[in-house]
Design a protein around this nucleic acid. Sequence first.
DNA 1: ATAGGGTTAG
Length: 556
Amino acid sequence: MSRRGLPSNLRFYNICIHAFGKWKRLDKSLKLFAAMKAASPPLVPDICTYNSVIRVLVIGGRVADALLVFDEMKLAGIHPDVFTYHAVVDGCCKSFRMDDALRMFQEMRGGTRLKGGVVVYNSLLNGLFKAKRLDEACGFFETMVADGIQCSASTHNTVIDGLFKNGRAEAACRLFYELRKKGQLLDGIAYSIMVREFCKEGTGDQVAEAVSLVKEMEERGFVIDLVTVTSLLLGFNKSRRWDLEEKIVKIIRDSSVLPDAIRWKSNMMDALTGPQDRAKDRTSIFPFDGNMNDVMSLLNPAVCTDTNEGTTHNEPKDDWSLSPHLDHLAKHADHSNNSAIFTVHRGQRVEGMGGKTFDADMVNTYMSIFLAKGKLSVACKLFGIFTNLGRKGTSYTYNSLMTSFVKKGYLKQVWAVLHERGGQLCPNDIATYNLIIQGLGQMGKTEVASSIMEQLSKKGVYMDIVMYNTLINQLGKVGKVEEANCLLEQIITRGMKPDLVTFNTLININVKAGRLKEADKYLRRMIAEGIAPNHVTETIMIFLDKEIQKKKQQSK
DNA sequence: ATAGGGTTAG
């Protein structure tokens, strides 16, 4: 297509659609698309338009729609390029649609012979690890090498993190130390992952090891950012090694976030020792009367109103349009921000001191420390101080507060917090929904939790392994063991792999229900999957043993 | 334009 023939306006629209996507204003982007087509003379969407719209849909968590638009684009005779494939592959990976992601990837690599860069490979690699498909992830890593792709630091970080999260700590460490020996392709993030792992267990020795790694980071000139500092703070608190905190301040020469974080902490401690506002702890703002419709509408307006499904067929069809689905989306742009169920992006990235999120992230960190200690009212007070500052909480602030409320059975407070968020721009992230599922179980509303998951499933919304594990446990507790067992098959059907928690939960609920044979079956299956039992499994097995002994005694 | 902070099991 000749450059001269292109209306200059098209480029302008494309840039705006892309920009609004970054701000998570899906509605604005879609409206712009509609406006563009309605212009006179009408502008014809080009590859850049489609790439932008697809990216925007992915960012807004509307992966299913993004895939439909992707198909429409091909039907319209526009050939996807590497950017298009990158967007759809990335979207699929982030929403646990690994089979779709792999299919797209093969289409790109085999069918169109486009050569994707290392970024696409990294995206897929990360997705496979996140979906707990360890063997495939390792295999894919080899494919990458075979394809002649030059691994980047991100590749190694993804593999190190993926090995840790899949119970292969030893292999992860080996890779890290091997790369360190070679002195190549390791950056601050690799160190940060190692620091996190050493801090997680919280024994004094391990946290000391983490501190020495941070020292090495400093020597190598890597930035010790807020993510790393957060891991350290959690480690100091768990191990109670305050001497290490002092030590690390001395180690760090360059100005970094750590001194700021520690100063922030002492200011916060001062504020917290002031008079406690008990009323804030127990405000019952939410008039929860047991009406489950409220819960459903809170979860997802579209589930209740049915407006989205109904309109598709009643609309006058424009037979000439090459993008009917996208047109439909654009027409209903106003609702598009509400009907996104999850954001694909989980939390917000932290840029470091000076960034707007510093306070929010510090609150998050200390909130989880207080909550872990069961100091709910201190956490509430902290939350109050934070809200009075007039800042918007990131989703994690709410999530950690709600986790604790849910665990203590303060469901009213959970609803209050959710209502507070009602008018917010950003859709809740998946952790929030995991909490709701958990909360419903606490209220004895397992069947509601179950039906919500079923509806999400029907809508093609992605659910992560935590959500499944939570529901499996709840079904088991109310005696619906058979249904729980079925969920395992559903996990597999959806292209995910059950993890250690899934199997421990399944074994546990089957033991408790007296189904010893099934419990044994799941144990074997777990081992066959290459998942190593841990101390939780052991506890469950001891219980299983006792049950078997009891049975033998009875039969005598 | 990809990677790192927590959440699920006893």
